[in-house]
């Protein structure tokens, strides 16, 4: 497994981790009446979502959304870019070719995300509803994370997931 593949695996793990955090936190923070038997479902539960959680717990949000991904990225780059005494080239033209194709594929597919985000907002709420302006940077943030995920997966697919080690 070469440097590009290791970077791609780091990208997959990091992006999946970051994308899972809101889901995990939302399920911890929000009791779901239909799925929980230990609460009285007749009591109206405040409709809380990830944005509400961020509002109530900014410290944890910053920790999860900013610090941990940054630390993970730094650790990943530290381990991947370690100096080796091996005389073999670490990256060559094929790796660059694969990365370029993955980048093109990612840019094409990433265009769909803002459209999907808008569609979700329209269907989840109503066409005349308003949303808070702070949601837009979050959409961009998650678009960036999904960009990393798609880019990493596109690289791994072209390498054959690295399991065969090119054999």
């Amino acid at each position: 497994m070469n440097k590009t593949q290791k970077g791609a695996w780091c990208g997959v793990l990091m992006s999946v981790f970051i994308l899972l955090i809101p889901v995990i936190r939302m399920n911890i923070a929000v009791p779901i009446p239909s799925m929980r038997t230990d609460i009285d479902s007749t009591i109206p539960v405040e409709r809380t979502n990830i944005w509400g959680t961020i509002k109530t717990d900014p410290l944890l949000s910053n920790l999860f959304f900013i610090i941990i991904p940054v630390v993970l990225l730094l650790l990943a780059f530290f381990f991947i870019n370690r100096k080796r005494n091996n005389a073999e080239a670490e990256i060559d033209e094929r790796d660059r070719f694969i990365a370029r194709r993955a980048l093109i594929a990612t840019f094409v597919s990433i265009c769909v995300i803002p459209i999907v985000a808008c569609a979700v907002a329209i269907f989840a709420l109503e066409p005349q509803a308003t949303i808070q302006i702070r949601i837009f940077p979050l959409i961009l943030y998650f678009t960036y994370i999904i960009f990393i995920l798609i880019f990493s997966v596109a690289i791994l697919v072209q390498y054959g997931w690295g399991g065969k080690d090119g054999k």
């Binding site: 005389a87 073999e88 080239a89 990256i91 060559d92 033209e93 094929r94 790796d95 390498y159 090119g166």
Partner: peptide, 11 residues
């Protein structure tokens, strides 16, 4: 061969 050609073994 990879070392002589300046590429990776996978290539």
């Amino acid at each position: 061969l990879a070392q002589k050609a300046g590429c990776t073994r996978q290539t």
